[in-house]
């Protein structure tokens, strides 16, 4: 599914619902409170996600005066659990939109919200027990790795040598890397090295410096994240080896998208994994309270290869990400 198209549809649907006064699920005068719990903006992707969340909440509030949002960002699992408990206890929320910091520890607190009869939307990272949430909106990590791997397979000759930067060791990272490896299997591409760059520019810069010291010939880099891609680029230009290799990042940071648009030979493509999925989750959840649109189910936002041709539709110059 293509994200932008979906968003447009949802927005139109919502607008119709608002203007047409078509039997809202809510009694007149009573406000619906939607709790939003997401991790705090500790790195680029989450920063983007926070921005999208805030922007969407602003927009939805203006459109639907009878919706109220409670946004809480958490820097740690424990804090997120507390946030959710507080929302139920003190703000009497009608719905919860949550991006779990980690799946396991958040499962039972979220289940408690559901058991209290609230609406639950889970974003990006699934809970460890199926069937709790009413709505699931997520990116596709396997597709993210697979799309990247397919690009490498199609654009490198057998025997080509690549290096990989991994993120913070998590299930999510494993899914991506496994899918990437599966996608390049049998292509004859050799992975020289695979180290953790922790989705951090500085760390990626240092890891890449060391790769460059260690390996005389590198044909391509899978940086797996646009923040890391920026650190990698700097290390390569410091070594003066820009001509030797190209880089694929991921997630759709505006600077990187811009380079793809501008046909930078170092960054031929990017792979989408959009922080705007939180907007989708919020909009769809809002629909539940302002219209009768049936919104149950799972929305998996696939990862798309961003090329010079389609880059424009992934480019948000105003987003901090």
């Amino acid at each position: 599914m293509e994200r932008r198209t979906f968003l447009t549809t949802a927005a139109i649907g919502a607008a119709t619902a608002a203007t047409g006064v078509s039997v809202p699920a809510l009694a007149q005068g009573k406000k619906a409170v939607i709790g939003v719990s997401i991790p705090s903006a500790t790195h680029g992707f989450m920063g983007g996600l926070n921005w999208h969340a805030q922007e969407t909440i602003k927009r939805l509030k203006t459109t639907y005066p009878n919706l109220e949002f409670v946004l809480a960002t958490a820097g740690a699992v424990g804090k997120q659990v507390n946030d959710i408990e507080d929302m139920v206890a003190t703000r009497n929320i009608d719905a919860l939109v949550v991006l779990p910091f980690e799946s396991e520890p958040l499962t039972s607190p979220v289940k408690a919200v559901k058991d209290a009869g609230k609406w639950v939307t889970v974003v990006d990272r699934g809970l460890s027990q199926p069937g709790i949430e009413d709505l699931y909106v997520a990116g596709d990590n396997t597709a993210f790795g697979r799309v990247s791997g397919e690009y490498f397979k199609a654009n490198l000759k057998p025997g080509a040598k690549i290096v990989v930067l991994r993120g913070i060791p998590t299930t999510l990272d494993n899914e991506r890397v496994d899918a990437f490896q599966a996608a390049i299997a049998g292509s004859g591409i050799e992975i020289l090295d695979m180290q953790h760059g922790n989705w951090n520019r500085d760390k990626a810069f240092q890891v890449m410096q060391d790769y460059l010291s260690k390996h005389k010939k590198i044909d391509a880099v899978w940086a797996a994240d646009d923040d890391m891609a920026i650190g990698v680029m700097e290390a390569i230009s410091q070594a003066g080896r820009q001509k030797e290799m190209w880089i694929v990042g991921g997630a759709g940071m505006k600077e990187i998208i811009k380079r793809v648009m501008d046909k930078d030979p170092q960054i031929p493509v990017d792979v989408s994994y959009t922080p705007a999925q939180i907007s989708t989750a919020l909009e769809v959840t809002a629909l539940r309270f302002v219209s009768n649109t049936p919104v149950y189910g799972r929305f998996i936002i696939g990862s798309t290869l961003i090329t010079a041709e389609n880059a424009a539709q992934f480019y948000f110059p105003d987003s901090p990400f």
Binding site: A41, T42, H43, G44, G47, N200, R201, D202, F205, D227, I230, G231, E234
Partner: peptide, 12 residues
């Protein structure tokens, strides 16, 4: 001058 940027994760 190294990366020309700062973010919430700088200097972590």
């Amino acid at each position: 001058p190294r990366l020309g940027s700062a973010s919430g994760s700088t200097g972590m």
